[in-house]
Design a protein around this nucleic acid. Structure first.
Length: 313
DNA sequence: GTTTATTCCTGAGCGC
DNA sequence: TGCGCTCAGGAATAAA
C-alpha cells in the first residue's frame, strides 16, 4: 500500500526521469481514473497536451508534477499541476518501449506520451488494479505559511485539492509543537488522529500500526488525555519508521506497490506487527493480535500496548 | 464545528 | 474446474 515512503520513492524517480519532458499526447483507458478532474477525460487530455513537466513534488501521499507552457510566449512559472494519488494500488511507471518492448500492463488506466525526457523514456504509465487512485490537472494555490508546498516543491504553493491536507512528518516546514497541540485537541483515539490527513499527512494503516508499536501506545488511547511527551513519542516513532522504510525503497507485499521502474521495496521484512497475526512480538514474544478497526485491521502487541481502560475508539 | 460511518473498486485467495 | 464469498484500504462524502 503506498504511504509516504512509497510515494516519496516514486516522486524521486519521476523527478530524475521525466523532469523537462513535454507531453505529446495522453490516452485515458478508464474514465474512473480521472474522476476527480473537472472537465472529464477529454478536458484532462486537453489540459496536459503540449505542456512541460517542470518537476515532481509531494505532500503526504499526494504527488504532483508542476506544468509550464512550452511556447516562448507562455508562462514559465507553473500555475497548474498534474496531480496524482496512488490510492491502494496505483503505480506510475516510466517506460521506454524501445528498451522494454510494447508490453502493456493489464491494469493500465492512462498513458502519457513524452518527448524529451532526460531518461529517454517515452511513456509515463498510470497502472492501478483497485482503481482507488486518480489523476487530475488542477490549479496551484499559495500556502498560507508562505513555505514551500512540500518535498520537491520550490514554490510556496500546492494543488487546490491538497490545500486542506496537513504537512507531513518529513516536511522541514512542519510546525511540530503546533502538531502536538492539534493532536491533543482532538477528541478521538490516537490512531484515528494519525490517519486523519488534515491533522498530519502521509501516515496510513501500516505505518500507524508500526509507529504505535514502537512507541508502546495502544491505538485507542484518547488523544485529549495524552501528555505532550507521549504524543511526541508517537510522532517520533512514525517519523523514524517512515525514514527507515524510505531508505529501503518502501514496503512491498506483492506487485501492488513498485517504484517508477517496477521494482519492489524491501521494508516489509522489517515490519514488527503489521500483518503478523499470531507471530511473536519482536520485543516480548507475545503473539501479535489483530482487531477490527475502522473497517480495516489493527495489529498490536497485547503486552507492549495494553488497551486503555478509558480510551476512545 | 467536530467526529464517525459509508462508499467507491478489483482481483487474489479460499472453501465447497 | 468453477462458483461465490471475504478481504485489502485512502479519503471524499454523508450522516450523526
Amino acid at each position: 500500500m503506498p504511504e509516504l515512503p512509497e510515494v516519496e520513492t516514486v516522486r524521486d524517480g519521476l523527478d530524475r526521469l521525466v523532469t523537462g519532458a513535454v507531453v505529446r499526447d495522453v490516452e485515458v483507458f478508464r474514465d474512473y481514473s480521472v474522476r476527480r478532474h473537472d472537465g472529464g477525460p477529454a478536458g484532462f487530455v486537453d489540459q496536459l497536451r503540449g505542456r512541460r513537466l517542470a518537476g515532481a513534488a509531494r505532500r503526504g501521499k499526494y504527488l504532483w508534477l508542476p506544468l509550464t507552457d512550452v511556447a516562448p510566449t507562455g508562462q514559465t512559472v507553473p500555475a497548474a499541476a498534474l496531480l496524482a494519488h496512488l490510492g491502494m494500488s496505483g503505480q506510475l511507471l516510466v517506460r521506454d518501449p524501445a528498451v522494454a518492448g510494447e508490453w502493456e500492463h493489464p491494469h493500465l488506466r492512462a498513458r502519457i506520451h513524452l518527448d524529451g525526457a532526460p531518461s529517454g523514456a517515452r511513456y509515463l504509465d498510470f497502472v492501478d488494479q483497485r482503481t482507488f487512485g486518480h489523476l487530475s490537472v488542477t490549479d496551484l494555490a499559495p500556502t498560507p505559511d508562505g513555505a514551500p508546498g512540500g518535498r520537491g516543491s520550490p514554490l510556496p504553493a500546492v494543488p487546490e485539492p491538497v490545500a486542506h491536507i496537513g504537512r507531513d512528518l518529513l516536511d522541514p516546514a512542519l510546525d511540530r509543537p503546533a502538531l502536538v497541540e492539534r493532536v491533543r485537541r482532538r477528541r478521538t483515539g490516537i490512531k484515528r488522529a494519525l490517519l486523519d490527513q488534515a491533522v498530519v499527512s502521509g501516515v496510513g494503516n501500516i505505518y500507524a500500526d508500526e509507529a504505535l508499536w514502537r512507541a508502546r501506545v495502544h491505538y485507542a488511547r484518547a488523544t485529549d488525555r495524552m501528555t505532550r511527551p507521549v504524543v511526541g513519542r508517537v510522532l517520533d516513532a512514525a517519523t523514524e519508521v517512515m525514514t527507515e522504510a524510505l531508505g529501503q525503497g518502501g514496503t512491498s507485499f506483492d506487485d501492488l506497490y513498485v517504484d517508477v521502474n517496477g521494482e519492489s521495496g524491501y521494508f516489509s521484512r522489517s515490519l514488527a506487527v503489521y500483518g503478523r497475526l499470531g507471530e511473536p512480538c519482536r520485543r516480548c514474544a507475545t503473539p501479535v493480535r489483530r482487531d477490527e478497526f475502522m473497517n480495516r485491521s489493527s495489529f498490536t502487541c497485547p503486552v507492549c500496548q495494553p488497551r486503555p481502560r478509558n480510551g476512545r475508539w
